Structure formats: structure tokens, C-alpha cells
Simulated scan of single mutants.
Amino acid sequence: MIGIELPVIDVTDPAVLLDPFAAYREARERAPLARLAIPGMGEMWAVTRHAEARAMLTDARFAPNSGSYLTPPGVPEDCRAYLRTMQEKDGPEHARLRGLVAPAFTARRALAFRPKMTRIVENLLDALPAAGPVDLVADFAKPLPMDVICELVGVPAADRPQWREYGALVADGSGRGFAEAIPGIVNDARALVASRRAEPADDLVSELIEAQAEDGDRLSDVELVTLVWHLVLAGQTPANLIANGVAALFAHPEQLAALRADEGLAAGAVDELMRWCGPQLLTTPRFTAGDVEFGGTVIPGGTPVTAAIVSANRDPRVFADPDRLEITRRGAGAHLGFAHGPHFCLAAALARVETEVALTGLFRRFPRLAPAVPVGDLRRTPDPGTWRLGELPVTR
């Protein structure tokens, strides 16, 4: 099978942007690998099937590096040291940083944090406009994750509106606005660390500072500031998951009715929604250290390779009738929506609980919640890497 002809997907093709599930489905059933054409940027390879994607994400021959995340042009020199985040590190260096912060993101800690998340959800629902259609993306789904992660990390309430703006720039995906905001992001992260060093509190930043004080070799000042801003801005996945999930449930009223009738189904529903309409379509690219034989062909050295989550999560080899949404599906948790292996999403447990609290709180508060426009007419933001809604107008 070495040298098989691989399907090619133009990620900017309007048909692919409109329905990536169909495009990747066709590629997946032809071969376990595909080539992604990215006009102006060259080519990236994608692993299309579930088993092979899991294998690639744990294979040391594929590793993230500085090429996984491009430094935006125009970033001031004094900020550049803070841009190499944990996600683009590998091996012992990555393991050391992850080990320092991982205890704050266990399933047990996420459940313990649930009452605070519930309070944040209720406050946002209280603040929704009283009249007319409400945009759940702008007024609920986007601010919620930022408020939750700021509470966890220890960002003061007065500073959170600014961090919401930073989060919006990241969610926009254009890169330019984010690049312009980097000095402010870095300075605000520095200020937060300095504040908590002077006055510790019951939050993650204070925990990290305490660990640094106990053993200064474990976490440098640059690493600490980098961790702070990256944790805050990387914790925005639930925004798109919540919006996608609400839209999917609107489109499948029998599934919504089942969830309304039994909130005990919510945890499983979150995993099924992440499998069926999770926001991340592709994992962060990894690079082959040399020529690698994989999936029946040879991938040249230095090639960027991604796992096509959009394809793997609907692989019929793992999920029966994979294009059907079924919130009671057994085995939905096998999805790769949070990736897999050493770079498995650090805040996955937090995101799961947060989405569960958001969906149950929303549908409990508004039993007549309905889309203000046909679900099929909802506007998707054209993005080859993320499946997301530009808005979600609803009536109550």
C-alpha cells in the first residue's frame, strides 16, 4: 500500500466550509490519510480515521514544535518570550509544565467548582435582555467560559471585561487583532501574577506562585506569566460547544425533549454533542521528525500532520450510525473532541461540567426556548479549523 493516492481536500472550498462532515466522510472512506490544500500556506496531511488518529496523537514520531503555532508579525520583542506556550512543547519540558497545573483541572476539582459555575450561569441568564430575540452566542455562550476560567485562575472581577475582549479576539480567529492585543495580554498577566504574589488568594495563580516559591527551578517567571494568559484564553472551547449544542438540540427536538425530561442525561449528552458537533475540526499540527511510514504510505520528514477530529468522531468503525445525534449513545466518550495522548485538553473535565451546567440551566430557566430563525438558516463563521456559529438568536 506504500505510495497510495490520497484524497485532497481544499479547506477553503465553500462546499467544505459549509459541510465539512460530508467532505471528510468521503475522504475517510477512501483512505486513512488525506492531504489538506491550504491556499497560500502549502499543504498539511490529515489522519481521517479514529484508530489511526489516536495512534498518531501518541506516536513520538509526530511532535508539535514552534511551527505548530506561528508567531504573529509585529509582536514586540519583549513579549516574544511569553508566546511559546505549553501546547507547542513536547517531551519532558511539556510534562513538567503540565504536571504543575494539572491538579487544578482534575474531574474532582471540576465537580467541586460546579457551584461557582452554576452561579455564573444564573447571573448571565439573569442579565439576558428582557425583550426581543436574544443572541445566545454574544450574550451567553461567549462570556460564560471567560467568566468561569477567570474565577478559577483568579482574575479580579474588575479586570474581566478586558479579558472578555481578549477572548473575543482569539475566537475571531483572524490573528491580526490578537497580535495587536498581545502586549496588553502579557502586561495584564504580569500584573495578575504580581498582585497574587503580594496578596495570595484561593485561586490557581496563587497555587502556582506557591509552587514556584517552594522550588524556584520548577517554574520560571516567564513560564508562570505564559501559563496564566494561555490558560485564560485557551479555556474558551465551551463557548462554541454550547452554541453548537443548543442549535443541534433545536434541530433534533426529540433529543431536546429527552434532555428536558431527564437532566440526568446531561453528562452523556455533552459527550455526544462534542462527538457530533464539537467545535474543533482539526488538532494542532504535529511534524514528522523524518520519513514516517503510517496509514499505508510514507509521510515525508518535516510534514505537518493533523488529526481530523471532524472525521474521526464520525467514523463508523467506532460509532454505529455515526451521523445520527443520540444523547443516550453508549460509548460517545470515545470521541476525540479534546484530542488524545500527552496533549489531551487539560481543561476537558472543566469544559464538560461547564457545558452540562450551561445547557441544563438554560433549558430549565426557559422551557419555551426556541430558535428565532430556522436552524438551517443560522450563519456559520467560515473557518476550516473550527465549526462555530456567528450568532444564535432565540426567543423565550
Rank of each mutant, 00 (worst) to 15 (best):
E5N: 08
A15R: 15
V16E: 13
L17C: 12
R35P: 04
A37C: 10
I38K: 10
M41S: 14
M44V: 14
W45H: 11
V47T: 01
A55I: 03
A60Y: 13
P64N: 12
S68L: 07
P73Y: 06
V75T: 05
R80Y: 09
L83K: 04
E88W: 12
E88I: 15
E88V: 15
K89G: 04
H94T: 00
L100T: 03
A110N: 08
F113G: 05
P115D: 02
K116T: 13
K116Y: 11
K116H: 12
R119P: 09
I120N: 03
L125E: 03
A130F: 15
V134D: 03
D135Q: 02
L136S: 09
V137R: 09
F140D: 05
K142N: 07
K142E: 08
P143N: 08
V153S: 06
P156S: 01
A157G: 01
P161G: 04
G173W: 15
G173E: 14
S174Q: 09
V186W: 15
V186A: 13
A189L: 07
A194R: 12
S195F: 13
R197M: 09
P200R: 00
L208E: 04
I209F: 02
Q212D: 04
D215E: 13
G216F: 14
L219C: 03
L231D: 02
Q236N: 13
T237N: 08
L241I: 00
L249F: 05
L249G: 01
P253E: 10
E254Y: 05
L256W: 14
A257D: 15
A258T: 09
L259T: 00
R260D: 06
R260S: 02
A261L: 11
A261E: 14
D262R: 12
L265Q: 15
L273P: 11
M274N: 15
W276N: 13
C277G: 06
C277H: 08
Q280T: 11
L282A: 07
P285R: 01
F287Q: 05
E293I: 02
F294D: 02
G295W: 01
V298W: 10
I299W: 00
P300I: 00
T303F: 07
S311E: 14
S311L: 06
A312D: 05
N313L: 03
R314F: 15
V318W: 02
D321Q: 12
R330Q: 14
R330H: 15
R330D: 10
G333N: 14
H335V: 03
F344Q: 15
F344E: 15
L346A: 08
E354L: 07
A358L: 10
A358G: 12
F363P: 03
R364M: 07
R365L: 00
R365S: 00
F366E: 14
P367F: 03
R368V: 15
L369I: 10
P371Q: 14
P374M: 10
P374N: 12
L378R: 10
L378D: 05
P382W: 12
T395N: 07
